[in-house]
Amino acid sequence: MTAASGGAAADPFDHPALYYSGGQEYLDGTVPFIEGGLSAGEPVAVSVPGANLRLLREALGDSAERVLMLDMTEEGANPGRIIPGVLRAFADRHPDRRVRIIGEPIWPGRSEAEYPACAQHEALINLAFAGRDAAILCPYDVDGLDERALADSLATHPALVDRDGRRPSGEYDPERIVGEYNRPLEDRPRTALRRAVDRFTIDNARWFVTSYGRRAGLTATQLIDLEIAVTELLTNSIWHGGSTGMLQIWTEKDQLVCDISDAGHITDPLAGRRPVDEDRAYGRGLLLVNHVVDLLRTYTGKHGTTMRIHMRLPANG
């Protein structure tokens, strides 16, 4: 199996999907990609779920010390955090070098709530890295993932690699995926608490959500993160979304969920995914939210915008 050793002629950015079945195919597809990078003197990072991280560590032996190894289930639990917090964070540390990254953001345990943001993330990598001297290889577990995830990967990756080799994707269309998964979010439960917030009530809203979060069992650190996230989302609503945000908050299963709706329309798909120095205030607020929540979901259009955050409740909370 030949992984992403060569990129497209015009754009130095290479973003293939790697389809694997079982540990051996995983290693056959990823280890040559890593070792090729190391022998070419290119910085290499790996961000994959824990079990695959362990597999790679073992296979790489001493070479693993020269690779930045991250657990994607921690670093990339929120898909919106992966581009700024993992991929660009690494690539930008090596501005004059070609970098190689293995990123596995979609694994069989991803929830229905997370999946649309995962697919959009895969699509947006192409936009975020266009023209960059980088290769990002994305493994897909063909045994564990459903047909939807595999079909979407054909649209989010310009090239595909499997045990038979490498070929271009005939269905590459990342914009379609960004649009298709910009969907109305599920209905809120009847228990959701709801209140309108404007600039005169934003400090009261902070008190309200942290009181709710404390009662729901969030940790002290999570309460800080909730206060930060809600403030930034409301601030965006007040400045850019018609001066009022409708805040709703509830708990479901093991999560606290809070969403904020307003009259604005986010037209920049990379808002909140650029490094801090490149984004304007609106995107910088979203960047912060992406970093501190477990999941950020968005539905935006001319009708308005809903941003929904999820925070995991501690097990015995």
Partner: peptide, 23 residues
Amino acid sequence: MAAIDEGRRPSGAEAPPGLRDGP
């Protein structure tokens, strides 16, 4: 985790005096 107990919801629209951040 159960939903928030109805009786323990923050009931009022306003934070109690002294708990708001203030200007």
